[in-house]
Design a protein around this nucleic acid. Structure first.
Length: 213
DNA sequence: CTACCGATTGACT
DNA sequence: GTCAATCGGTAGA
């Protein structure tokens, strides 16, 4: 399938990939059906100098996917939820982009069935909720995202991202609070984290406009 | 084996 | 804003 982003997309610097992913479509197809959403919030985890990265203390059975080929999924459990990442950069440079939130675009009824009755903007707002809404579980760990079969990322139909990307410290991490590696579309209601008045957003900075041609 | 802990969520003050 | 539930991964005895 040519709609799925190719391996080359993922074989780049993790921050570049993270920002480029904003505005793109994350698509999941299971036996239950198809569900998809526009990516509005991500976080980068660096292969070096990032104490918050799972790979920072070496390879273990649990984080081995991060050491694999760029373009595969890294799905891991936490607090009885799952988080979905895409592996980036060269093999052996264990870095990944955590997808924290998507704006539902297709399969909202299916997502609602999986998540229960919640407002639509809440369906995939947060990494654990996103996995539940899209039916992503640990069976997707190491899944190849470049084939366009059950789980992939594609460019939004005809689309360039028009909104600027903003950055902030990552959410929920205690280590490396000084790294501004969370990227999101400011003001989008599907972005997770605290909803604050504009004047209180002192930790958020614009990082650029769309890098998609 | 036990102990500790977290890239979360949902309920509650 | 705060906090507890909950559970697999990991390290250590």
């Amino acid at each position: 399938m040519d709609r799925a982003l190719p391996p080359d997309f993922y074989d780049r610097d993790v921050v570049t990939v993270a920002v480029d992913m904003l505005g793109m479509l994350l698509v999941s197809r299971t036996r239950e059906g198809l569900a998809a959403g526009r990516i509005v919030e991500v976080e980068a985890y660096l292969s070096r100098g990032d104490a918050a990265c799972h790979a920072s203390r070496g390879e273990t059975p649990g984080n081995a996917a991060m050491f694999g080929r760029p373009g595969i999924a890294y799905v891991y459990p936490i607090h009885s939820h799952c988080c979905f990442n895409v592996v980036t950069q060269a093999e052996g440079e264990p870095s990944a982009v955590l997808v924290r939130a998507v704006e539902p675009c297709r399969g909202e009824a299916l997502m609602n069935r999986r998540r229960g009755t919640v407002p639509e903007f809440d369906l995939a707002r947060g990494p654990g909720r996103l996995c539940k809404a899209l039916g992503i579980d640990r069976g997707r760990n190491r899944y190849d995202l470049t084939r366009g079969r059950g789980l992939w990322i594609e460019r939004s139909p005809g689309a360039t991202r028009e909104e600027p990307a903003y950055c902030s410290p990552r959410i929920g991490v205690t280590a490396a609070r000084d790294l501004y590696l969370r990227f999101f579309l400011l003001g989008n209601p599907c972005v997770s984290g605290p909803r604050q008045p504009a004047r209180k957003r002192s930790l958020e900075f614009q990082v650029g406009t769309s890098s998609v041609e």
